[in-house]
Amino acid sequence: MLYYTDLDKRIYEMQNQIASSNNIVIVSGYVGFRPIQELCDMCKSVNITVIYGMYGSERISLPLHKALLDIQKNYPNITILYSTIPVHAKIYTWNCDDVIKRALIGSANFSVSGLMNDYKEVLSDVSDNTFDSLKDYCNYVQSKAINCNDATVKTRQQYKASVISFQVQSLLSKGICRATLLDRYGEVSRMSGLNWGLSKGHVSEGDAYIRITSNYIKLFPNLFPPKKYVGVENTQSKGKKTRENDEVELIWDDGEQMVGLLEGQQTKTIDGLVYPKQLSSSPSKSILGKYLRRRIGVDVKHTITKADLKRYGRTSIDISLIGEGIYYLDFSVNK
């Protein structure tokens, strides 16, 4: 059977359907921290092995590596491995000891981007007459992998741009988008952006978003993907039928982790495509807002001003892509 919606729920709930399964093995070209953490929470009595496949050719970004180390440290039932040979496969197996009982393969990476955006990727059941060769392949990849806490792990250092100097070419060359928290008048909007939760619309206390301008999209075409389902009805959408938001993973400079949402639509198309207009958090937009307010040092009822940001030390957030659907956000001031 072919699956293309609710892939995350299918992965998380499969264990309950296979009474004899006592271990799960996942081989994925790219991985995210949130799906691994959620699977560990849901299957605490099951041994889980996750192999990050493309480490062999791309290494791993330092922020993501730290997030995975934290998961392995905090969950005794998880082993996270990095394949030393390039592996782009996406394989999910539920096993009884060394015997596969159920398996899925397809295009969906074990990440928020791969599993939580309907119709973007697919997974399909594997017939049991293929289990032996699939097991041989997974065993081979595992034999070429190292533990995430191995001393030989090589990471990609995350470039941190100076807050003081705004060097556009330097930021462009490093793939860093410096997103301003100020509006077109050089102030913090009183009813949107950081102060969105204080507006009179359908908002909750602490709601906030980071604005994505058309200029950011033109300068960084690979950073913010175009919207899906534009002009095509999406019957599964919980909102407007012709609009779909991408869920992504966010890792901050202080190690904070959250699920993000690329939402809304730019007022004008860019090269005929529709792009998101803001970055918020999911499932609640207040997750982002309350987090930023804690860092700035103000409460949820306070109207953030430019003076507040100046006192904190910066008026922008640096955004870069460090993995499939995984963003690194730098709001640090000690540089």
Results as ranks from 00 to 15, higher is better:
Leu2Gly: 00
Tyr4Cys: 05
Ser20Ala: 15
Ser20Lys: 15
Asn23Ser: 06
Gly32Glu: 05
Arg34Trp: 10
Ile36Met: 10
Leu39Gln: 09
Val50Pro: 02
Gly53Ala: 03
Arg59Asp: 12
Ile60Arg: 06
Ile60His: 06
Ser61Pro: 02
Pro63Tyr: 08
Pro63Asp: 08
Ile80Arg: 01
Ile80Lys: 05
Ser83Tyr: 03
Thr84Ile: 01
Ala89Arg: 06
Ile91Thr: 07
Trp94Pro: 07
Ser113Ile: 01
Gly114Ala: 06
Val122Trp: 08
Leu134Pro: 04
Lys135His: 09
Ser143His: 11
Gln158Leu: 11
Lys160Arg: 15
Leu172Cys: 03
Arg178Trp: 04
Arg184Tyr: 08
Gly186Asn: 12
Gly186Thr: 13
Glu187Trp: 01
Ser192Pro: 03
Ser199Val: 12
Ser204Arg: 11
Ile210Pro: 00
Ile210Leu: 13
Ile212Met: 02
Ile217Gln: 01
Phe220His: 11
Asn222Cys: 11
Val232His: 05
Thr235Trp: 11
Glu247Lys: 15
Glu249Ala: 02
Asp254Tyr: 06
Gln257Cys: 15
Leu261Trp: 00
Lys268Thr: 10
Gly272Leu: 08
Val274Tyr: 05
Val274Ile: 14
Tyr275Phe: 15
Pro276Ser: 06
Pro276Lys: 06
Lys285Ala: 07
Gly289Ser: 07
Gly297Arg: 10
Asp308Arg: 10
Leu309Asp: 10
Leu309Pro: 10
Arg314Leu: 01
Asp318Pro: 03
Leu321Arg: 05
Leu321Gln: 05
Leu321His: 04
Ile322Lys: 06
Ile326Val: 15
Asp330Val: 13
Asn334Thr: 13
